[in-house]
């Protein structure tokens, strides 16, 4: 494996796989909790993707070190700022989803989707 392969493809491929876990889980899993987890993994994949975009060779954290100037010495701060927001969004979605799951569990007693739908129609 060449260095080029690693830097050009491997991480993007991993992100793609992680990202596709979301739809896969959504389609093939029956348990609502597992679906939620798949969804979370999908969001994390996007976050990793953005953070990967911000990296630079031989650069340090985007916090000013006295005396060290120059754009190439610091990694790109923008994706980090964006992803803080995305993390919070992910957290909020999960919170809401858990609240909904709690209600479903209380009401229907199960978290298997087909069972829930069956009991819903009764």
């Amino acid at each position: 494996m060449s260095k080029e392969f690693l830097s050009q493809y491997l991480l993007y491929w991993l992100i793609a796989v992680l990202f596709m876990i979301g739809p896969i889980g959504m389609i093939f899993k029956n348990n609502l909790m597992k679906k939620l987890m798949a969804m979370n993994i999908m969001q994390v994949a996007v976050i990793i993707f953005f953070l990967a975009l911000g990296q630079k060779m031989d650069a340090t954290l985007p916090i000013e070190i006295p005396g060290l100037t120059g754009v190439t010495n610091y990694i790109n701060p923008l994706p980090h700022a964006l992803m803080l927001t995305a993390i919070v969004v992910s957290l909020s979605t999960t919170g809401v989803a858990l609240a909904l799951l709690l209600l479903i569990q209380k009401k229907y007693g199960v978290l298997e989707e087909d069972e829930v739908l069956r009991r819903m129609d009764q």
Binding site: G22, K35, L36, M39, M42, Q43, A45, V46, A97, L100
Partner: peptide, 10 residues
């Protein structure tokens, strides 16, 4: 809706 919507958002 939340699941599908979040997939959309992602």
């Amino acid at each position: 809706y939340l699941l599908i919507g979040t997939i959309g958002g992602s």
